[in-house]
Write a protein that binds this DNA or RNA. Structure first.
Lengths: 346, 346
DNA sequence: AAATTCCTCGCAACCGTTTGCGTAAATAAA
DNA sequence: TTTATTTACGCAAACGGTTGCGAGGAATTT
């Protein structure tokens, strides 16, 4: 049993062992030109031998660069986000970056704290999907002011903000879902929306309204709910909808959790889906495919979203790295496609 | 429109503005005693004013301490892990630590790389749930040898390894599920297991076997499958099981994805569940509750697991911080409870 | 009033890497 | 051979905080 003392190797150790200077070791590790081939391989051999790993803090401190990207997301358990995150992480990994994943739990306070923390660790960039209640985005200023690029996705700022924005086509999603229900003959369509403090729900609602308008139907206030999209809230909304006639003939829910709960409620009430009530959800959660009847929903193509985010991010990183263009940088808004998935519930 | 130049404030800036030394600023930020109350509040005011945030890299470099904990997990999209992670993150946050979440995607190579990366950033500790195929754990040595505590959970080392281990009671889970099926009168029980390179499947299988043995039933080789627990593989297994009589009268699957696919297959085949075939899954994935018929499964109490992990972690951090006890530290193995949830599928 | 203690704060070295500058040796050009 | 150029490497100063040591001043003791 060897008793290895817990030595943290530094380039000074390596230098001593090889009769070289720390500078040369550093140059080898950074693939600088102008180091002799033989020296390089000697160094690499020693690196392997002692299992040296560059201290990321020292490196980052000196070079003022990190290869860590921060991500802020409401919760990783949401299917859409889990998929996006996985894609981002895999893509970034291919380009030598690491990802720090943080959850805000839909708390504005936590989100604020996270931006500060990510700034403190001087991440190379930040990707963020905001809380439901983030209407003021000034806590991201500490990042943008210090030339740390920010990319918002999915839940993005409603007001103009100097950052790249990548969002699903929520307007179209809302429009497609509602139009689909209208085409099925529904005329008393209820809509369970998220709070209108959040970009995605603003857009989905606009799409919904547009579709209703095209059929000359009013968006009646007692058939629309603005609430956090939990199962409990969905149940409350359904109770109210079915508290007095005329009952709605369709429910469009702005996420699948609500749609699934609506379906559950309908089953309990003995309301036949899709005959007496048609339901459409949003996000294509895996549950929506396996429930009976299977749930019509909107596919958001999370993998595609993830790839788009990373592509833009890499552009930004190059841009920022090139020069400190004070605010001249372009902040594109990219809208990614969505698609209606027709299933049995409608 | 103010044009703030992108200044990264340092304690030197603050010191200059306040006619103090950087040392004093540092002491204020670290809550050292022996700083004058008035000075302290002046400094804090300035910190607030300019939005100063301590550079984590510089701090970590000098003090050789970080408040970042690394987490390696096969995939965040697995329900159990998503829940555990969320709990860990919330708990750690309360104690001033941050969590870096990394996915191995069940790739041993990625897992190895991640341990090196986490070592490079000198995290305070690492929490890991291994890939399906990790049987050699020497890539974690770089951490333990450098006094970075490691906690394994769920998928833990099979061989002895000097680290804290926190695992669900998989033996009991396998036993409970199988016994339940036996009590329902099943005698031709098929078992869809994960590969036996992975601790959890070893234990679940042992529990399964024990239950079978208590009923004097053999564990017939052509009713047991060792495979990655994907829907595709589950389907293949089901095809084989139903390729010739006698058909099994029950399927116990070591995760819910497989169990759900088994149910799906049975429906397609016109096999009535639970009348002709009973099915039990593992993990209490949300899908198992909403499918029809709802799926009997094993609850693992992920929140409880997460809390246990953090509790142990904090102990370890204190311990390591106190002194460099070379290997004298105790490495407890903690087994957390599981529970059978009876539903309609059995 | 002198001596002692305590409080408050500055000095400066250090953490591990990076990098501009300088220099010696090797090579190419004159 | 001399001069100019290139190559290979070392020196030393940063990067932003932390912390042991020591000094000056105020408060306390004798």
């Amino acid at each position: 049993m060897k008793k290895k003392p817990p030595i943290q190797h530094s380039i000074h150790d390596l230098a001593r062992r090889l009769n070289l200077s720390p500078a040369t070791i550093s140059r080898v590790l950074n693939n600088h030109p102008h180091v002799h081939k033989e020296t390089r391989s000697k160094v690499m051999a020693m690196v392997e031998k002692v299992g040296y790993r560059r201290n990321a803090m020292a490196s980052g401190l000196r070079s003022n660069k990190t290869n860590t990207v921060g991500l802020i997301v409401p919760r990783i358990s949401m299917f859409f986000h889990a998929e996006v995150i996985t894609t981002i992480q895999n893509e970034l990994h291919r380009h030598g970056y690491h990802l720090v994943i943080c959850q805000s739990n839909d708390s504005l306070e936590v989100e604020k704290e996270l931006t500060r923390t990510l700034y403190a660790s001087r991440v190379a960039a930040v990707i963020a999907s905001c809380t439901l209640f983030t209407t003021d985005f000034s806590h991201f200023d500490v990042l943008t002011e210090n030339n740390i690029p920010v990319i918002f996705y999915d839940r993005v700022p409603i007001k103009p903000y100097p950052a790249c924005i990548i969002k699903g086509d929520d307007y179209r999603g809302g429009y497609l879902a509602t139009t689909h229900l209208l085409e099925q003959g529904c005329r008393r369509i209820a809509y369970i929306s998220g709070p209108l403090t959040c970009s995605v729900y603003v857009d989905r609602f606009a799409g919904h309204r547009q579709a209703m308008q095209e059929y000359d139907l009013p968006v009646s206030n007692n058939r629309v709910f603005y609430q956090e999209l939990t199962a409990e809230n969905a149940r409350k909304a359904m109770k109210q909808l079915f508290s007095k006639k005329p009952y709605p003939d369709a429910v469009f829910a702005a996420n699948d959790v609500s749609a699934l709960e609506a379906l559950h409620f309908a089953k309990e009430m003995g309301v036949s889906v899709p005959d007496d009530l048609k339901i459409v959800g949003y996000s294509n959660d895996p549950r929506s495919a396996i429930i009976a009847p299977s749930m019509t929903t909107i596919e958001q193509f999370p993998t595609n979203t993830g790839k788009t985010i990373v592509a833009e991010l890499l552009k930004l990183l190059k841009e920022y790295h090139g020069q400190h263009t004070a605010g001249v940088a372009s902040y594109p808004t990219i809208v990614t496609a969505v698609e209606l998935i027709r299933r049995r519930s409608s």
